[in-house]
Amino acid sequence: MAKHEIEGMKELMKRLENMGEESKTITKEVLTEAVQPAKKEIEKNAPSNKYTHPYEKKYGKLKNNIELEWDDKKQQMNITTSDSFWSWFLEFGTKSMKKQPFIEPSYHNTKKEVEQNIIEGVKKRLNLP
């Protein structure tokens, strides 16, 4: 999916890196809060049918399967579609199905807000103005 580097974050990240283990906790907390607008936008834009598909009987509605997943090794927050494997068919289409993108447009619609949330969250936890 999309990766994005935030301008002005290098200085903040350097300061975080110098904090050792505490920085991992701060990073996880900040990212968990910061990506909420993107998660909500994806849930709102997730395609939904009027009828209940057999997959939905087993796995639930797509919009209810949007979850945050922390990658401890990469120190990054991922927004996933959990057990809703068919989300990829919707997002990118198939040979016999037109794509119905909802993840990438949601990312672009909330990118600036998430960036601002990250900056504000890091500054707040580092007691910066």
Score class of each variant (00 low, 15 high):
Glu17Trp: 07
Asn45Asp: 10
Ser23Lys: 07
Ser87Trp: 05
Lys50Leu: 04
Leu90Thr: 02
Ser82Gln: 08
Gln36Ala: 08
Glu69Ala: 11
Asn64Thr: 13
Asp83Ser: 09
Asp71Ser: 13
Ala46Met: 07
Glu22Leu: 13
Glu5Ser: 14
Ser23Glu: 08
Lys61Asp: 08
Ala2Asp: 14
Glu43Leu: 01
Glu69Ile: 04
Lys50Ile: 00
Thr32Trp: 11
Pro54Ser: 05
Arg15Asn: 11
Tyr55Glu: 03
Lys40Gln: 10
Asn18Asp: 10
Ile6Ser: 06
Ile26Val: 15
Ile79Tyr: 01
Lys44Val: 09
Glu41Lys: 09
Glu7Tyr: 14
Thr25Gly: 15
Glu29Pro: 05
Phe92Thr: 03
Lys14Asp: 15
Ile42Ala: 06
Ser48Gly: 04
Tyr51Glu: 12
Met19Ala: 10
His53Arg: 10
Asn78Glu: 15
Ile42Leu: 06
Leu68Glu: 14
Gly60Ala: 07
Met77Glu: 09
Ile79Val: 12
Asn49Leu: 08
Phe89Pro: 00
Gln76Ile: 07
Thr32Gly: 07
Ile6Trp: 07
Lys50Trp: 02
Leu62Val: 06
Val30Asn: 02
Leu90Gly: 02
Pro54Tyr: 09
Asn64Gln: 10
Ala38Trp: 01
Ser87Glu: 03
Ala34Ile: 00
Val35Lys: 01
Thr52Phe: 03
Glu91Phe: 01
Gly8Asp: 12
Leu68Gln: 14
Lys40Pro: 00
Gln36Val: 11
Val30Glu: 01
Lys57Glu: 10
His53Pro: 00
Ala34Phe: 00
His4Ser: 14
Gln36Phe: 05
Glu22Lys: 15
Ala34Cys: 02
Glu17Thr: 08
Glu41Asn: 01
Phe89Ile: 04
Phe89His: 05
Lys39Tyr: 01
Thr27Pro: 06
Lys74Tyr: 09
Phe85Val: 04
Ser48Tyr: 00
Lys73Gln: 11
Lys44Ala: 14
Ser84Glu: 04
Ser48Glu: 11
Thr80Glu: 06
Met9Ile: 15
Ala38Phe: 10
